[in-house]
Design a protein around this nucleic acid. Structure first.
Length: 1027
RNA sequence: GGGCGAUUAGCUCAGUCGGUUAGAGCGCUUCUCUGAUAAGGAAGAGGUCCCAGGUUCGAGUCCUGGAUCGCCCA
């Protein structure tokens, strides 16, 4: 076949190109085809962590989604079948909040008044509001995922699967209702789970108050208590001290305060009179006057001092004010003394009617007035501001309170060891997550607070009769068999109408009012996405566990945890084998992107300007993904310039000369050393890419590919240009092979440009993504090493020119190369190349450096260190004392030299020293290690004329460009001007016409030509396209 | 207060098993090359490898303590 290629523009807009490729993928249905073709192949299982589509997708979604895409693409090319089912997380507070905003309402009463059925209907509509934009973005960035068959957590089938799993949990006795202190959002009116709390820590300033608690039987003496939640003082029930800490009675003015000794100075300042010391245990039982008397009955030990093992002397006064309902420690302490919990705060966060003037006020809002009251009645010692990190509702931002109430729990503490074992089987990226963040979290796991007193969520499938018989229902079938009628919609309020007789007592069973944590929904996706076990059980089993999941690191306590917990309880194992954790995307200044800061970069902005490949390339290669990104447009642009443009232009170069010369695709010819070198480098690159992608490391894979592209463009192609101008088959075949293999190698990373190149260069398959991933061919490492030496020599020569201030255009007589025999051999093999690159007429080799400099010997610590240990300083001295020139000569010939250490003679071989050349004064020598290059800078007339001729050629090439000629156009050339210049051209006429593709050349003055000057000498150039 | 991670050039980042002269790209200055290039090449400026101890013949790298930043937990 000899089809000419489609012409390729060098100034290609990548966003435009990507639209073309997307169109082709759609037409040819490439994504699904890539799955169909792997029917029967080993599965590589990917689980999609469902996003909530009720907000616009941002750059962080792009980050996660391109990392979700790259490995499935890679594994597909490596021969796996990779199903990718999309999903949407649809339940939960964020959705309800959005709807509340839309409706302009803000409390549970408002929702009830509005009507739960209508409210939930609006939630259902709202949650997929931005699905369209998500889908567009997903397609645009090249994230291949099946959105048509996406699972949706609000579907009845999904809910039924979740119910099934809850019933399993129930059967294991791990689902229970308990009265506990829970983190509670007063605005949302619901408790939050610990992993939700974990998402919401923010700095907050609270009052820090020191309060007097006067002893009942001793006027003038007070306990000094401390709290940052003054509103809890309204229901103060007791004080807590540490039994074994020393407390003091401190005289301050005309009163006596009791507090922990280590804190006296910090709280009261210096020079306080200590009247007495005692252990905390001695204080226990002492009665005091509470600060308020709205509620006084807390049962036994009300308003006395208790011993609490949680009391520390880290801050405050060492005396902890205890309001039983608002702290886990407080609550447990009260429980252990058999006290009565009084909770004066209603579920909406306001004080109840018992609280006198504070009734009806929000607790945080009441703080200032409470402090004022304390001040007025002499209870306040001091109030100051206290900044600390404090949990907030992760979605609505309201500061949480800890609050005693009834909730449903999963007893995850009972399976802690199993969780830890499951975690151990997971391969984490980065590895420290396993025993760090995740491992530590699991070691400290608490029971999963499962229930939410909200509306839009999977209903908790527990029914209860008046006799308090509970039953967890695990399927619709079971519900029917109990005599219930199953509604069309399993959500509230319909499900709440479902009643049936209690199997135990025959009483009417009604469902408990709660819905469940939406994290439980998403954590159930391994089975619920298939409606397993009610349907597709085989599919579920085939696709469990996942080989790979990937989300941002905040999911450690979110989805990563809920998946792990549910699977561990149900099946005793983790539902994923490899988990990649991504960092946050920060702005240029390292600030978190947020709407309030106004520093959010819209992904569309990046995609429209640079394209998806550029965005992907930046995310994949700019750094390891887990430490977070400092995002900037400039950084993305840099990747385009350095990688995508270079790749594209090399490809465009190939196509240009293949078309100009009519070189067929299957042309082949003799391969030169340079050809074999670049092919060996290609193999090395393929090797590295496979190895790194197998290890989920796009960064190193991408960087290796970029280094290859640089070698290909700036070394191989540049040095081989003349061969391409002539369309030499060996060169064309080599470059085509490089580009084609490159397209396949880079395809998972930059799928668009890769496919475009493949389509034009080969196109046998409908897409590069249906190809096998390249396998590395045998390498020629000897050649790779030789080329490194050659490149070093060229670099040294250029450096010598630069220091000698001689332009590269000016030919020089000779370069003198100092090199060890092996290096010399390498350079000799590629002499033509070195001559051209350095623009010299000849190379002369000297094996002894004496003419150019003097050898210096340095010990190789890497080999000698382990051998001599403590004697290394002596060794270094002995090596330095050797006669460098003779030793160097001996060593280079493979001999060994003896050194005397502690009276013993030790042989030193070439490996044990590093030879370095110290240049002598007065030579233009550049050296590196064992080799050096010197230039003879003398010019004669012939060299000067050649130099001038090259200058003229340069000027003519510019004129060609200005005249808008194509690179392959032949020209008629007319020159005029300075006689010395024309003389130089005459002396090198063949060279000049050859370089400029001139079919005719005359010297008759070129009237109307372009005026220019070379070294101050005037030159006139006229070019016209030759017919 | 605790856990995890980070700290290397003006910026973004590499740095292997501990090996003695710590690198790249960008940016800057000067020069240069161009028959594909938003390119390439050379030179220059630019470093307390966060700090302090320790281990070692030898520490950017290992250990201890501290500082700062980020995330997480109390």
């Amino acid at each position: 076949m000899s089809t000419p290629y489609q012409p390729v523009e060098t100034g290609q807009s990548f966003p435009d190109l990507e639209q073309r490729v997307l169109e082709r993928w759609r037409e040819r249905d490439i994504f699904h085809e890539s799955i169909r073709r792997r029917e029967g192949c080993p599965q590589y299982v990917f689980y999609e962590g469902p996003p909530t589509a009720n907000g616009r997708p941002g750059s962080h979604h792009v980050l996660a989604r391109v990392f979700k895409d790259v490995f499935p693409r890679y594994k597909t090319m490596r021969g796996h079948q990779v199903h990718r089912k999309a999903g949407w997380d649809t339940h939960g507070l964020p959705v309800e909040l959005e709807v509340e905003r839309e409706l302009g309402i803000q409390s549970k009463e408002d929702i009830e008044r509005y009507g739960v059925a209508e409210f939930n209907q609006r939630c259902r509509e709202s949650v997929l509001k931005y699905v369209n934009e998500f889908e567009q973005l997903t397609e645009r960035i090249g994230f291949w995922v099946d959105t048509d068959s996406a699972y949706v957590t609000y579907a009845n089938e999904y809910i039924e699967s979740v119910w099934w799993s809850l019933k399993e949990v129930w059967k294991k006795g791990l689902l229970y209702q308990g009265y506990k202190v829970v983190p509670y959002c007063t605005r949302c009116g619901t408790a939050l789970s610990s992993h939700e709390v974990a998402q919401g820590y923010e700095d907050r300033v609270d009052p820090s108050v020191f309060v007097r608690f006067p002893l009942k039987d001793e006027p003038g003496v007070s306990f000094l208590g401390w709290t940052t939640t003054p509103w809890t003082l309204l229901s103060n029930a007791a004080l807590a001290v540490a039994a074994d800490v020393t407390y003091v009675r401190a005289r301050v003015g005309d009163e006596t305060l009791i507090l922990a000794e280590p804190l006296v100075e910090r709280v009261l300042g210096e020079g306080v009179d200590i009247e007495a010391r005692m252990k905390g245990s001695e204080l226990a039982g002492t009665a005091y006057e509470p600060p308020f008397d709205y509620v006084t009955d807390f049962g036994p030990r009300s308003h006395t001092v208790l011993e609490g093992d949680f009391v520390t002397t880290e801050d405050g006064t060492g005396i902890v004010h205890t309001a039983l309902a608002f702290g886990e420690d407080d609550f447990k302490l009260g429980e252990s003394y058999g006290m009565t919990v009084q909770n004066p705060v209603k579920e909406d966060g306001t004080f109840d009617e018992r609280m006198g003037p504070f009734a009806g006020r929000l607790v945080f809002d009441a703080n200032p007035d409470i402090i004022e009251t304390l001040r007025e009645n002499g209870r306040l010692l001091r109030a100051e501001d206290y900044e600390h990190s404090y949990p907030h509702c992760w979605r609505c931002g309201t500061p949480l309170i800890y609050y005693a109430k009834q909730s449903w729990y999963i007893k995850t503490t009972a399976v802690r060891d199993e969780l830890l074992a499951s975690n151990q089987a997971v391969t984490w990226y980065p590895p420290h997550i396993k025993n760090g963040r995740m491992g530590k979290w699991l070691e400290n796991v608490v029971d999963w607070a499962l229930s939410r007193e909200r509306y839009w969520g999977t209903p908790l499938p527990v029914w209860r009769c008046e006799e308090k018989h509970d039953l967890c229902v695990g399927s619709l079938e079971e519900l029917r068999s109990l005599g219930a009628e199953v509604p069309d919609d399993l959500h509230k309020p319909y499900i709440d109408d479902v009643v049936f007789p209690c199997p135990d007592c025959g009483g009417e069973m009604r469902r408990v009012p709660e819905v469940i944590d939406a994290w439980y929904d998403s954590g159930s996706m391994p089975f619920a996405q298939w409606h397993a076990p009610f349907a597709n059980e085989e599919t579920f089993e085939q696709r469990f566990p996942a080989d790979y999941i990937c989300e941002a690191i905040d999911q450690t306590r979110g989805w990563f945890y809920s998946l792990l917990a549910i699977s561990t309880i149900l099946w005793g194992r983790a539902p994923y084998e490899t988990c990649l954790c991504l960092g946050l995307i920060l702005d240029e200044d390292g600030q978190k992107m947020s709407k309030s800061r106004g520093n959010v970069v819209s992904p569309w902005e990046v995609l429209d300007r640079f394209g998806a490949d550029a965005f992907r390339w930046y995310l994949f290669t700019s750094k390891q993904p887990w430490d977070g990104y400092r995002f900037s447009m400039e950084a993305v642009g840099e990747g385009v310039r350095l990688f995508l443009n270079t790749l594209w232009n090399t490809y465009a170069f190939y196509v240009l000369y293949a078309n100009v010369n009519g070189v067929p695709r299957d042309a082949d010819g003799e391969r030169t050393e340079l050809d074999r070198w670049i092919l060996s480098r290609l193999s090395e690159t393929v090797e590295t890419a496979r190895e790194r992608l197998d290890d989920y490391d796009t960064t190193s894979a991408g960087r290796a590919i970029a280094a290859f592209v640089d070698d290909l463009s700036n070394w191989y192609v540049r040095l081989s240009r003349r061969r391409f101008w002539d369309g030499e088959p060996g060169a064309m075949a080599t470059l085509r092979e490089c580009l084609l293999t490159l397209a396949k190698t880079v395809a998972p990373l930059t799928p668009f440009v890769a496919d475009e190149m493949y389509e034009n260069l080969d196109g046998t398959e409908p897409s590069v993504h249906l190809c096998e991933y390249p396998k590395p061919a045998p390498r020629d490492e000897e050649l790779e090493r030789a080329m490194t030496v050659v490149r070093d020599a060229v670099e040294l020569g250029r450096s010598a020119r630069s220091h000698g201030k001689i332009k590269l255009r000016q030919p020089l007589r000779e370069a003198v190369i100092v090199a060890a025999p092996r290096e010399r051999e390498a350079i000799e093999e590629h002499e033509r190349l070195v001559l051209d690159e350095l623009n010299v007429k000849a190379l002369r080799y000297v094996s002894e450096a004496d003419e150019l400099g003097r050898w210096e010997l340095k010990p190789n610590y890497r080999t000698l260190g382990p051998r001599f240990g403590k004697d290394m300083p002596n060794v270094a001295e002995a090596v330095a004392a050797l006669d460098a020139s003779t030793a160097a000569a001996t060593l280079r010939d493979g001999g060994s030299v003896g050194i005397l250490i502690n009276g013993n003679d030790h042989p030193i071989t070439a490996d044990d020293v590093q030879l370095a050349l110290q240049p002598l004064e007065g030579y233009q020598v550049e050296r590196a290690g064992t080799h050096a290059v010197a230039l003879n800078l003398e010019l004669d007339d012939e060299l000067r004329r050649e130099g001038l001729a090259r200058e003229v050629v340069h000027a003519i090439q510019n004129a060609r460009k200005t005249a808008g000629l194509n690179v392959e156009d032949r020209i008629s050339l007319t020159l005029g001007g300075d006689e010395e210049l024309l003389e130089a051209v005459r002396a090198n006429e063949e060279y000049v016409t050859g370089e400029t593709l001139a079919t005719s050349l005359s010297y008759d003055g070129a009237s109307g030509g372009e005026q220019t000057a070379i070294e101050g000498k005037p030159l006139t150039i006229a070019v016209s396209r030759a017919s």
